[in-house]
């Protein structure tokens, strides 16, 4: 009896040990995204996830001959939920940074856009250095590269930093006049400032900000560190959609300029 149990235990141990080696077939890939970051990912009026991130993920899944299932997850918990295996990959405009690389693996970038400040058209500021913004209040979405940038470089210089659950909330507070400015991805801000009425109050200010230490090397798809094969498949598919023009088509669908 004891022998049988021992044998069974050994078999289980062996199977577990062998698992990461055997290439898992990714027939279904569960993809986590935020769903509150237009135009990259958002929920339309039918609660369907839409946006550039979603379209890119669908194109990649087509190339990989896999079925993609999308799920929305609050930004704050998006990496912990990946590690907890709620889904297998994050396609949510996540910038590839050193800090995040310690937690998850990233594919090659699938787009790269700079960060920029926005401020009120009336009574806003004109210079965006930490010294110039002393005494002002600026906002960003929490646990983003923009939040880290403000927390590390601006807060110590006497700038009040406010952090929000979503970018929309930060924008709303800028429009209401609670914030003097926001720092966010330039394309996300472009969408808000140029399309629709809500952003009419405000405008871009200052240059593009590309500090690699904070803003990384563009947005990539995050996967768990043990899923090297999934990362490879994503990279291969990514190269293919860039080569065959699918990427360019999707880019044009959303933006009149290249964001790669």
């Amino acid at each position: 009896m004891r022998f049988v149990i021992g044998l069974a235990a050994a078999a289980v141990a062996l199977a577990t040990a062998a698992m990461p080696v055997a290439a898992k077939e990714w027939k279904t890939i569960r993809i986590g995204t935020e769903g509150a970051y237009p135009p990259f990912n958002f929920q339309d009026s039918n609660k369907e996830l839409q946006g550039f991130d979603i379209d890119i993920a669908k194109a990649l899944c087509d190339k990989m001959k896999a079925k993609c299932e999308f799920m929305a997850q609050d930004w704050d918990g998006i990496i912990p939920a990946l590690k907890a295996k709620k889904y297998d990959a994050i396609v949510a405009s996540m910038s590839i940074t050193e800090e995040r690389k310690k937690q998850v693996d990233f594919t090659d970038k699938y787009y790269q856009t700079p960060a920029r400040f926005a401020t009120k058209k009336v009574g806003g500021f004109t210079a965006v250095t930490p010294e110039a913004l002393k005494g002002k209040t600026v906002g960003a979405q929490s646990s983003t590269i923009h939040a880290n940038y403000l927390e590390d470089l601006y807060k110590s210089k006497g700038v009040t930093v406010k952090l929000y659950g979503t970018q929309d909330e930060a924008n709303a507070d800028l429009a209401a006049g609670r914030l003097d400015g926001v720092l966010a991805d330039s394309v996300v801000l472009y969408e808000w400032l140029e399309k629709g009425d809500a952003g009419k109050c405000c405008q871009f200010v200052g240059p593009d900000i590309k500090d690699v230490k904070y803003f990384g090397e563009g947005a990539g798809i995050a996967v768990r560190k043990e899923d090297k094969d999934l990362k490879q498949q994503f990279n291969k598919a990514l190269a293919e959609i860039i080569k065959d023009g699918t990427y360019e088509k999707l880019n044009k669908k959303y933006f009149p300029f290249s964001i790669y």
Binding site: K102, Q103, S142, A147, E151
Partner: peptide
């Protein structure tokens, strides 16, 4: 903490987000 006040929970969330 959900409306930008850094109370105990807000500070905790910030720390958890930065450190994972």
């Amino acid at each position: 903490s959900v409306v930008t006040v850094f109370d105990l929970m807000g500070a905790t969330r910030l720390a958890a987000n930065r450190t994972f």
